[in-house]
Design a protein around this nucleic acid. Structure first.
Lengths: 204, 204
DNA sequence: AGATATTCGTTCCAGTTGGTACAAAATAAG
DNA sequence: CTTATTTTGTACCAACTGGAACGAATATCT
């Protein structure tokens, strides 16, 4: 694997490190409110370097989100792909989203970007929407499997159930980023999740 | 009530109209992404006039939110203050938040400002937090009354129930502002609300 | 060494930002 | 008419914005 050196001046910019720092920065500070100049400063990157490496802020943000997918989005989805009761998956997901790991910011970068809407660049936004669909499908599929096992109310469409789970986790993660109390949020989401298992008709 | 004219040049700026236009603008476009210059243009206000009248963008935004309180926040809370079943209040609130009145933007200015966090000015942020408490208290009080009437699960603290309702409506209104389908959101929130009435122990 | 190739960051650019100074405008009082 | 008072918006400010031009730097190849 001895890579033969190319012709010109060797690169010194560390793409991976820049992505990692950008990821943490956007995760903590949100996606707006930081100018490109200030961003380059905190990333230890010259502005032309950023443009050469990522084509602009959009490219950088997309790369950061892509890295975040591996870091936190896929792990969350994995709870719903294991062969276990749906309630366990929900409990694990809720614990995962409300835990405060010491090194990393509260909340979720993906959630932040969803909320930012189309104000982010087009590449980033496309990726956001891809992840959004990917996640809802995973939730819905897990619910469908649970329904086959008779764990849940059969009258609820899996697509809607997936939307319910998504809505809860989205709200919880936004509140986490805003600094709300994790225990309270966990309790509130748990109450909401109970609606997925109800086989009662007490509310007309 | 014939007001005696004061000494100098008569004012021509229409404070109320400016607030109304600012309210609609922030409601539709969100609170960031518009410069002060552009804002003045759409408001039909010169920049010095804005500063004289509101002291800056913070003052304008606070005035707009204050107007919005009368327009939509209090009406929403009123559903929970009437003497009616809790389920009815929830249904009315959900209908209110997911309806798309033709003249006005989807979503909720108050919700947008909550999500904007402390990046808004300090006056505005203080008002946001006041309204936040006001609303959660109303939800909790309504749930407490419903509990006395035996409508709901007695094991749930009213404070937590209020938080649940708040979390749902917050998420729904954010999604509405993002352009999501009202019917789907309504259905999803309804499922979540069912958790408030469960008197079952089916989930450990 | 010299030519070629590639990456580097300094330096500049026009446009925009939030914010203010100040003179013109418009009224009432003297 | 002159003076006093108040509101108006133009014109200006320094600072910053996203973005690119370009020569210096550092390598391999002949």
């Amino acid at each position: 694997m001895s890579e033969k050196r190319p012709r010109g001046r060797p690169k010194t910019v560390d793409r991976g490190a820049a992505i990692e720092r950008a990821l943490v920065h956007y995760w903590r500070e949100g996606v707006h409110g930081t100018s490109l100049n200030a961003l380059c400063r905190t990333l230890g990157l010259s502005k032309p370097s950023l443009y050469r490496e990522f084509g602009g802020e959009d490219g950088l943000l997309e790369a950061a989100l892509s890295a975040y997918r591996e870091h936190a989005v896929l792990p969350l989805m994995s709870f719903f792909e294991r062969d276990q009761p749906f309630t366990d998956a929900l409990a694990q997901a809720l614990a995962f989203t409300t835990e405060r790991a010491e090194g990393q910011p509260p909340g979720c970068l993906f959630t932040i970007l969803r909320e930012a809407g189309e104000r982010v660049g087009s590449e980033t936004w496309a990726l956001v929407q891809r992840l959004e669909g990917e996640r809802r499908d995973a939730f819905a599929a897990a619910y469908a499997r649970a329904r086959e096992r008779g764990e849940v109310d059969a009258g609820l469409a899996p697509e809607l159930a997936g939307r319910v789970v998504d809505l809860q986790l989205h709200a919880v993660l936004l509140a986490m980023h805003a600094g709300d109390d994790p225990a309270t949020l966990r309790a509130a989401a748990q109450v909401a999740f109970r609606g997925l298992f109800a086989d009662f008709d007490s509310c007309s």
